[in-house]
Nucleic acid binder design. Structure first.
Length: 756
DNA sequence: TATTCCTGCCAC
DNA sequence: AAACGTGGCAGGAATA
């Protein structure tokens, strides 16, 4: 009953508010005639506005006072002739009109100001003259305009080229551009082919992998990448806020540059852009790319080792990645379907259980949303009679799973839905419509340390990309090699620890590697007080859980994990963690000195080097001034900024060592990938690079590979990039499905029996 | 309604 | 007092 009364009351309130509003509007209409524009603006600006709206309104006000825009008659009076008050909504409508007009003005001005040395090529004659000219160029800048960002399916609508010697910038539109003047695409590409495929003509690009692969889809084997201004920018400053050409040009070249969206609108097709506009836009792109290249080269040359690294590793790597990406993946959809159904069923059962059990602790009419931490935290806290700080699986829930069945079921539900939602259900939808394979992106500059990131293309809105590097164990078997092929994976054995041994010169570590002992196993033996052999990797290549745990501990400790967190991780008291760390690391004074020297270096210089000055990691926070906080004042809000400052400093100090180790290791992986790719080309016969996961390189290879092939892989892995005198190691696996690997010996044993 | 932020979790 | 580095992505919540 109370509910009903409340509803009526609310209805009354609404009705009376409507009446008041109506009265207000009527009086506003009466006063509209009297209100001046200044008064109207004052009224609008006095109302509650977002910053964005405030900016827009200010622009409209300025334009109106300049007389460049005015109210439309349909807005000033109603049909009956009653004056209408100037409103915020009307002003925002005027803003849109203003934007459209500005855009048109900008485009017109762009065309009027087309530089003398910009040339639109639309005739066979002009094209053949240009092609002849190209043959004499040592280096050019080049860019493709396309219908979209799917390099396997979308079309090229034009190509722009900068000829630096003669300072000319051309744009060659091709069909399907809706313009009578554009030439046939295949004919243009054929004419350009000799230059595009000529490795002796150097090419400067912005995001080279994109252009290389979309040209490949059009039957052109693009060669001669000499510089990628996008990846070079990452090397010059890994902290750059944006790596878009349109942001870099104003910042580093002092050249204003409109974005595509600003000029043409969000979903505009470049093929629809009139050719005079297209010329200025596209030719300017390669001109800017060229100038950015000159700027970058000048700066990078000041660091000869870094310059050498960029041109001999990062640049050749672009071809390797482009090949790897376009080779793509095959997914076993039957596996996905079967596994997906199993997961769905499991999830539904768990969901029912959870909703049922939590119903009485959940407030609200709707059933509880199990995926919402917001709803789950209070309900679950009540259900177990204990306040949970969060729903973090590792820290909060896992320790409680044995005591409370509901938590155990929730963790299982989370695992199942994560697997199903992110991987098993999602991946099959990402098949490329043209190649029928799955293509991911590998970004060689996707991280601040030099590791690859993997995922979707930044511009891609179709969601066709996916991260190859975080596929869970259970999902990997969905990835299969083509028929009659296998996957061969080789990892760098203890890559980061070998790297640490090399960088620090720690004799205990170096000696361990030289005598074939495994530091993780040594540490596990020490911690668990069990024989070395028992905790080491098993003969079949699988890891023991003890060794696996030490792997995490080793790295975490190296990267500055506190004793508190270490104790937490190992389930021991802080003082025991401290003692354990002292025991392990105390025997390695040179390693400790090196860890310390990384801190002093970064505090002095604001950056650290990866390996032989190949890559910088700039950590300016290390140079902040450390603030003193008196004992017992940590909760005093007055010391908030100091706390923040100090934690930024501490973070930078931890990052210093991490960046050196991760950076140096990633260089090893990249150099080795180039050699691995070279090996594929030498072998031919269906050998392809298949992927990389930080310390691992994978191939797809014909199933009749030989022991000699394996020896080649071993050589490539261990000899392509040396960590000084520290030997490299590798473990090689052969698989019919990703993750279902066997050792090489097992493979050949099965093969001899004809069991495959 | 579309975009951005946040939390949580997968990998090395 | 805080407490381990590098990523990408899903889904909910908050914001525009």
């Amino acid at each position: 009953m109370a509910q009903l009364n409340l509803t009526n009351l609310r209805g009354d309130l609404v009705a009376s508010a409507d009446r008041r509003q109506a009265v207000k509007q009527a009086s506003a209409r009466k006063s509209a005639a009297k209100e001046s524009m200044d008064e109207a603006w004052a009224r609008i600006f006095a109302s509650k506005l977002t910053d964005a709206d405030r900016g827009k309104l200010a622009e409209v006000k300025r334009a109106m006072s300049e007389g460049s825009i005015g109210r439309s008659p349909s807005d000033t009076h109603t049909k009956k002739g009653t004056p209408k008050r100037f409103s915020k909504a009307e002003a925002i409508r005027l803003y849109a009109v203003l934007q459209e007009r500005n855009k048109a003005d900008r485009l017109r001005k762009m065309v009027e100001d087309t530089p003398e040395n910009y040339e639109l090529i639309t005739t066979d004659d002009a094209l053949s003259r240009f092609v002849a000219e190209l043959q004499n160029e040592e280096i050019i800048a080049i860019d493709t305009e396309t219908t979209g960002v799917d390099v396997y399916s979308d079309d090229i609508v034009g190509i722009s080229v900068t000829l630096p010697d003669s300072d000319r910038h051309v744009y060659i539109p091709v069909e399907p551009t809706k313009d009578d003047h554009a030439m046939n695409r295949a004919a243009v590409l054929d004419a350009l082919r000799p230059a595009l495929e000529d490795a002796m003509i150097g090419k400067v690009l912005f995001n080279a992998i994109f252009d290389r692969n979309i040209l490949r889809s059009h039957g052109v084997e693009f060669r001669g990448i000499a510089w990628d201004a996008m990846t070079a920018m990452h090397l010059l400053n890994e902290n750059e806020p944006s790596y878009k050409l349109k942001d870099l040009a104003p910042k580093y070249l002092g050249v204003e540059s409109d974005t595509y969206d600003e000029l043409f609108g969000k979903n505009a097709q470049f093929a629809e852009v009139p050719l005079d506009v297209a010329l200025v836009y596209a030719a300017k792109d390669t001109q800017l790319t060229w100038e950015l290249y000159r700027f970058q080269e000048r700066h990078l040359r000041k660091f000869p080792e870094m310059y050498e690294y960029y041109t001999t590793v990062e640049v050749p790597l672009l071809d390797v990645i482009a090949d790897l990406e376009s080779n793509g993946y095959i997914l076993d959809l039957d596996f996905a379907k079967e596994y997906g159904e199993r997961l769905r069923k499991e999830a539904a059962e768990l969901h029912e259980y959870l909703v049922d059990k939590l119903a009485k602790y959940h407030e609200g009419d709707e059933p509880i949303n199990v995926n919402s931490p917001h709803q789950m935290r209070p309900a679950l806290s009540k259900a177990i009679g204990k306040e949970l700080p969060n729903l973090d699986a590792n820290r909060t829930l896992k320790p409680l799973r044995k005591q409370h069945e509901i938590i155990d079921r929730l963790l299982e539900y989370k695992r199942v839905t994560k697997l199903s939602g992110t991987y098993i259900e999602a991946l099959p939808k990402k098949q490329n419509r043209t190649t029928k394979r799955w293509h991911s992106r590998f970004n060689p500059m996707g991280t601040v340390t030099g590791r690859f990131s993997s995922g979707k293309d930044e511009e891609d809105k179709t969601g066709s990309g996916f991260n190859v590097q975080n596929q869970p164990e259970d999902v990997r078997p969905m990835f299969v090699p083509p028929p009659d092929k296998v996957l061969i994976g080789a990892d760098f054995k203890a890559q980061e620890i070998r790297c640490t041994a090399y960088l620090s010169g720690e004799p205990v570590l170096i000696d361990a590697f030289n005598t074939g002992r495994d530091p993780y196993a040594m540490m596990a033996s020490q911690f668990y007080k069990r024989p070395y052999e028992e905790v080491n990797k098993l003969p079949d290549g699988s890891d023991t859980k003890e060794r696996k745990q030490m792997k995490v501990v080793w790295l975490a400790t190296l990267y500055g994990m506190s004793d508190f967190a270490l104790g937490d991780m190992l389930g021991i008291a802080k003082k025991d963690a401290t003692a354990f760390k002292d025991e392990v690391f105390g025997s390695m004074p040179k390693l400790n000195a090196w860890l310390e020297s990384n801190k002093t270096f970064v505090q002095k210089n604001g950056f650290v080097w990866a390996d032989k000055k190949y890559r910088k990691r700039r950590l300016k926070d290390a140079q902040l001034k450390r603030e003193f906080i008196p004992y017992g004042k940590y909760n005093d809000p007055k010391f908030e900024p100091q706390r923040l400052n100090n934690s930024r400093i501490n973070r930078a100090l931890r990052q210093a060592t991490n960046a050196r180790v991760q950076g140096t290791s990633s260089i090893q992986t990249k150099v080795t990938m180039i050699e691995a790719d070279r090996m594929c080309h030498e072998k031919g016969n269906g050998w392809h690079l298949w992927g990389t996961v930080h310390d691992e390189i994978l191939w797809e290879a014909p199933a009749d590979f030989t022991r000699a092939d394996i020896a080649d892989i071993e050589r490539v892995m261990t000899e392509s990039y040396r960590f000084g005198d520290v030997p490299n190691g590798t473990d090689i696996e052969v698989a019919r499905r990703w993750g279902h690997g066997m050792t090489v010996d097992e493979w050949f044993k099965q093969n001899e029996k004809g069991a495959i």
